[in-house]
Design a protein around this nucleic acid. Structure first.
Lengths: 123, 123, 123, 123
DNA sequence: GTGGTCTAGACCACC
DNA sequence: GTGGTCTAGACCACA
């Protein structure tokens, strides 16, 4: 499901947010689907429930999830649209990172090798 | 030579630093080479001389450039090593950005298209 | 300054948010003003720093405050506009509460007495 | 009689409950009075009979109304007491809303103007 | 010193 | 059981 990189400089709650948006963008999570409980997710990701709660809260504020007291959380109808937007933002960030790497002298060969390595990790 | 993206969120002096390191890594600047004067660089990049000065100052502190009172700046002997290190750092950042983009749902096709587009821009 | 009612059903972080917006709307806090540190506010309000941090974080996301790593927080330029909006929202909520109270049989006399009492508390 | 605000976030059956309690508190309905039939009320309020039925059911469970199979509904003897209680609850909610509005920066002038407007609507 | 994040554990309200 | 809030205390990055 969602992979957390504890060594990453990116905050865990942010990785969870990105991960959920990613699953929606990839179609693994669809509007109306029930999202695992905060506690369950926390256990599965080996993370504190508060950290998951923060991600869920912010995704809810963003309109990606819908939550009601005492009930499970659900993927909202607007989620697909929001996910598309965030993927586009990600595309721009990646393009920026690529440009930076090129300007800094990273060769195309290095870049291709990084990509091939990641593709392998993906399996 | 060095391209400055004035719309980028990355500070200009930082783009200059990265650009210089990049030219060294690419072999366009070699240890012992004379670096253009701050004023000349400022004019060529359409940038404030203070901004160039800051980049040069920090590169000097870093050991990439060597400067002496009233003389030109030169690429240091250690520059190649330093540049290699910074390219390695860049590689890691790029790998990180790639991983993030993937987790967030960006498809391989999107990624390839970004790369092809950048390759084209490079010419 | 900001008064916290610990007996209120309204969450503390929300009372802080409303309080800050209120001070801006009242002109007690103006764009560019420095906001007390999270820790200082926490002590003054007898509240956990994390609770203040949440209020500050959300106000920042909302565009009312501006914060930078390691620096103090400041009231943003857009804060006045945002505060005006939130006051308008508050006005509507109050009007709704009034209408509800009237429909439920609360007499004008009762309402006036509540208001006079609150005016007294204000001093 | 009872006014329904279809644009309100408050559920309609709840508005009906509040309205009935209000009429009792205002003395427009007294213990022993016959309450119009569910169908008649539904027509008069332009509302689904099921919605009225729910309001009546809950008011009966609460002890405000009394109903017997096939007979009309009547205002119970305890109704006055219950209505007083609910008005008191309403008073507290209104006081809370007022306090919130004040803390959020709503001026007394704004508050008075809201009240005057509502008084006018009341006629 | 600042804000930002994470953890641990507690209590509440709702269903 | 669910999510929501608060506290306490820790560590990090930045300046």
């Amino acid at each position: 499901m969602i992979e957390i990189d504890f060594a990453s400089p990116v905050a865990i709650y942010d990785q969870i947010k990105t991960g959920v948006r990613g699953m929606i963008a990839k179609g693994l999570l669809r509007p109306g689907d029930k999202v695992p409980s905060i506690r369950a997710l926390a256990v599965r990701l080996s993370v504190n429930p508060n950290t998951v709660a923060r991600a869920v809260r912010e995704l809810t504020a963003e309109g990606v999830l819908e939550s009601q007291r005492g009930e499970s959380n659900y993927v909202s109808e607007k989620a697909l649209l929001r996910a598309k937007e965030s993927v586009e933002a990600l595309r721009k960030e990646f393009a920026e990172a690529l440009k930076l790497a090129r300007r800094g002298g990273l060769g195309w060969q290095d870049i291709e090798s990084v990509i091939i390595k990641e593709k392998g990790r993906d399996k």
